[in-house]
Computed example of a mutant assay.
Amino acid sequence: MLPTPCHILGDVHLGVASAESERRLLRHVRALPGQARSLIIMGDLFDFWFAWRHVMPRTGFRVLAALADLADQEIPVLWIGGNHDCWGGEALQAETGAQYTLEPWRGLIGPWDALLAHGDGLREVEDAPYRRLRSVLRHPWSIAAYSWLHPDFASRLAHASSKTSRKGRARDGGAGLQAVGTAALASTDGPRLTVHGHSHVPTLVRAGHGIYANAGAWYLDHQYLRLEDDRASRMQAHGDGTVSLIEQLERPH
């Protein structure tokens, strides 16, 4: 179980995010011990991440250090891997102390029965071609072959090939993932909170028997979700260090 208050961040895309966006993230993570008791990252913290045996990408090293500081302060971090940072979960866990998973996570966040998934590949029809590609990209043989590439060349190749999957918002406005989440919330044994990333569309709505949420893309709008025992809120972090409430829903009973 993750304790509340819990902050949920999504799709930061360090490596293509602006320097200002990274500064806001660092400020937010460093201030977390006074504001929340747990943190969830909904995937794609990096625009590209790969764990070579003896080197690691330099992008975002201060963010990783800030996450490690949270672990030192016994603030749990759950990291749901995305389609941009799926190669290197073991290394990321070792360096930050976060719990990292590429699988959907079902569990309690305070009193919330929650189902979390990044969202890539979840749409039954639209994502079928991507699911086939994903099975190749995440195959152990493919990962082993990629590890032989020089990190500079491999990073340039990854950034060049991933432009379409990070560009702006989902073409369907997030409707496809919201439909997937609503179906889970409508089932009798389903969760009461479903959270996705990936679409880059900030969302907080009642659906099925609970609430569907998406933190959006930090690198685009610096929004995040805040879960308390009795409510879910969509928040925005500003450049001067202040935050503002965008919308709020009471926890369904």
Rank of each mutant, 00 (worst) to 15 (best):
residue 41 I to F: 10
residue 82 G to C: 11
residue 163 K to L: 09
residue 201 V to C: 15
residue 135 S to H: 13
residue 4 T to Q: 09
residue 160 A to F: 06
residue 4 T to S: 12
residue 164 T to D: 14
residue 176 G to V: 01
residue 229 D to A: 15
residue 191 P to Y: 06
residue 109 I to H: 06
residue 86 C to W: 14
residue 88 G to S: 07
residue 186 A to F: 01
residue 143 I to L: 15
residue 198 H to T: 12
residue 133 L to M: 12
residue 20 E to T: 09
residue 88 G to K: 04
residue 141 W to V: 14
residue 17 A to G: 08
residue 121 G to I: 08
residue 28 H to Y: 12
residue 242 T to G: 03
residue 194 T to K: 03
residue 184 A to S: 13
residue 62 R to V: 05
residue 170 A to I: 01
residue 107 G to D: 04
residue 157 L to F: 14
residue 16 V to W: 03
residue 16 V to P: 03
residue 190 G to D: 00
residue 40 I to H: 06
residue 206 R to D: 05
residue 215 A to Q: 11
residue 141 W to G: 04
residue 143 I to Q: 12
residue 48 F to V: 10
residue 13 H to S: 12
residue 233 S to L: 15
residue 235 M to S: 08
residue 115 L to T: 05
residue 225 L to P: 02
residue 218 W to Y: 09
residue 50 F to A: 10
residue 212 Y to V: 09
residue 179 A to M: 01
residue 64 L to N: 00
residue 164 T to F: 05
residue 183 A to N: 11
residue 250 E to W: 04
residue 42 M to S: 10
residue 246 I to S: 04
residue 86 C to M: 14
residue 96 T to Q: 10
residue 140 P to W: 07
residue 60 G to L: 10
residue 60 G to I: 04
residue 100 Y to E: 11
residue 135 S to G: 14
residue 48 F to D: 12
residue 242 T to A: 14
residue 88 G to C: 12
residue 142 S to G: 04
residue 122 L to G: 05
residue 63 V to H: 08
residue 206 R to V: 03
residue 37 R to A: 15
residue 214 N to R: 10
residue 69 D to R: 14
residue 230 D to T: 12
residue 179 A to T: 11
residue 241 G to F: 08
residue 162 S to R: 15
residue 189 D to N: 14
residue 72 D to E: 13
residue 185 L to M: 08
residue 116 L to P: 07
residue 171 R to N: 09
residue 188 T to A: 14
residue 173 G to D: 12
residue 134 R to I: 02
residue 165 S to H: 01
residue 162 S to F: 06
residue 214 N to M: 01
residue 29 V to H: 08
residue 14 L to F: 04
residue 251 R to G: 00
residue 15 G to M: 10
residue 233 S to R: 15
residue 183 A to I: 02
residue 94 A to F: 08
residue 233 S to D: 11
residue 183 A to C: 06
residue 128 A to Y: 07
residue 37 R to Q: 15
residue 83 N to V: 04
residue 230 D to N: 05
residue 57 P to S: 08
residue 18 S to Q: 07
residue 170 A to P: 02
residue 141 W to I: 14
residue 9 L to C: 07
residue 13 H to L: 04
residue 100 Y to A: 03
residue 135 S to K: 13
residue 37 R to E: 15
residue 41 I to N: 09
residue 112 W to G: 12
residue 253 H to T: 02
residue 154 A to N: 03
residue 176 G to D: 01
residue 93 Q to H: 13
residue 36 A to I: 00
residue 204 L to V: 07
residue 174 G to D: 05
residue 46 F to M: 09
residue 232 A to F: 08
residue 5 P to F: 06
residue 154 A to Y: 01
residue 116 L to Q: 08
residue 191 P to S: 08
residue 235 M to N: 06
residue 251 R to C: 00
residue 29 V to M: 06
residue 83 N to Q: 10
residue 69 D to H: 13
residue 190 G to A: 01
residue 62 R to A: 15
residue 44 D to A: 07
residue 155 S to A: 13
residue 193 L to S: 10
residue 224 Y to E: 02
residue 226 R to D: 07
residue 175 A to T: 02
residue 123 R to F: 03
residue 194 T to P: 00
residue 85 D to Y: 09
residue 248 Q to T: 13
residue 146 Y to V: 01
residue 133 L to A: 12
residue 12 V to N: 04
residue 43 G to P: 02
residue 6 C to A: 15
residue 78 L to I: 08
residue 13 H to M: 14
